[in-house]
Design a binder for these strands. Structure first.
Lengths: 244, 244
DNA sequence: GTCCGAATATTTGTCGGACTTAATATTCCC
DNA sequence: GGGAATATTAAGTCCGACAAATATTCGGAC
């Protein structure tokens, strides 16, 4: 039967990467960190593959991946070049993983957070209206585990992500759920970042419980407001952390 | 100098597709239309490539593309199988193009529209606060062209999309702007759909002009509200069209 | 009989090299 | 000087072989 991995977490892609994946990751991060800027032309496939010590096949498959994510463009004779940033699928889960593996750009973190502020209150409102009992149970379990382990442990942070993901899922909107990885990246980064900076200014649990209560009670307005409040506080913390 | 194509439109990818792109498109649409369901196992690479009359290389590059978009997974001995729908990057521009090339799923259209309802009012508010004069000029020009050609012409529809895109861009948030293609797909589909059904119930221009005025005046609340109103009306039309 | 580890078979992954196609640059003719 | 034929160059495609990884099967120990 299907193993159906459903965690959606980052950074735990077990198993050695295949060569083309490794190269795609390297090229991708090189682009994300500005080592290759939009408009830049890549070296030829033969040169590049030889320099990297891999076959042209593997290198080409890596390039195909980056093209699929909107970062590159390649045509005969014209060569392979980096596309303008506006064409990148910056919300692609793998791309986010690449970003957050290194030191992500502070501006983009802020953008992601702003997106959360737009998405999640609406999602909470939809969830309050359309959630099933099962989905509520998932939130319940995630919240309990979060309370038990705290946000300083990996288990607690995973539970935090599960809670937010459950809300997106309970909104019963595939387009919204597709943003789960983006939201997850933001959630994950926040906590690790704050933890690194040694500032745990506030217990986040009451905010989460308020959201949970509102969704359980099918109170759409309260769900939206409590989630908005949660994010307002989180954003404030984030801004403090970023400016220090 | 860079040619910097910036249209972001669909369906007009000129030039013959490379073989791997064509195969990726075919496999992608086959998955999207349910011909291959999540969990389904693909035939082996040799069989598949022979059946399609292409080299294994080309077929493999196609598969790499689908994997990059979260639709497939492949491991030695285990084979290549379709991932659960929750892992698909349904907001990927290319994937949206595949969807809307055929007869897209009505439920997903509604989801996309709901997403618009969440994203665009917030974007309009941000745009009212942060827009530059240049960006306002772009909206102005788009609106003028929209008024001139009307939504029944391709030029008018392109202008409509440009208007909405300009608002996303004026929000000065990369994460938000990455959703431009999704919004654009919804915008585009709506108008063609309504046009096909022969119901042009209302002149959409006044709504758009109200949004434009609010953004020009830097009135954040009015921008949000007028955009929300625009979408409320559009959604109502959409629901009528979908239920008929 | 059950469980665990090794052999095995199968499928994707990687390789090298040849040839084709397409887009740019050049050259030559008018 | 302009425009069409030509050359050049880089990606695209193909083939055939070998390597690596893993699900399954088999065998032995308990």
């Amino acid at each position: 039967m299907g193993s159906a991995r459903q965690d959606g977490s980052f950074g735990s892609e077990e198993g050695a990467l295949r060569i083309h994946q490794a190269i795609a990751r390297d090229l991708g991060t090189a682009i994300l960190t500005g080592k290759h800027k939009p408009g830049d032309l890549f070296e030829g496939e033969i040169e590049a593959s030889e320099r990297l010590g891999v076959s042209r096949t593997a290198y080409r498959e890596a390039v195909r991946i980056l093209i699929a994510k909107g970062m590159l463009e390649s045509r005969p004779k014209a060569g392979t070049r980096v596309l303008p940033r506006a064409r990148w699928n910056v919300l692609d889960p793998e791309m986010l993983a690449w970003m957050f593996a290194g030191e992500p750009d502070a501006n983009f973190i802020r953008d992601l957070f702003e997106l959360r502020g737009v998405i999640e209150p609406a999602a909470a409102e939809f969830a309050a209206r359309r959630r099933t009992e099962e989905q509520l149970a998932v939130m319940d379990a995630a919240l309990a585990e979060m309370a038990r382990y705290g946000l300083s442990t990996p288990e607690g942070r995973a539970a935090d992500q599960r809670f937010h993901h459950a809300i997106l899922a309970a909104a019963h909107n595939d387009a919204l759920e597709a943003l789960a990885s983006s939201v997850g990246a933001a959630v994950s980064w926040t906590t690790t970042f704050k933890h690194r900076k040694k500032l745990l200014p506030r217990d986040p649990l009451p905010d989460h419980q308020a959201v949970h209560r509102a969704i359980a009670a099918r109170d759409t307005a309260a769900a939206r407001n409590s989630m908005a409040e949660l994010l307002r506080l989180a954003l404030a913390d984030m801004d403090i952390a970023l400016s220090e």
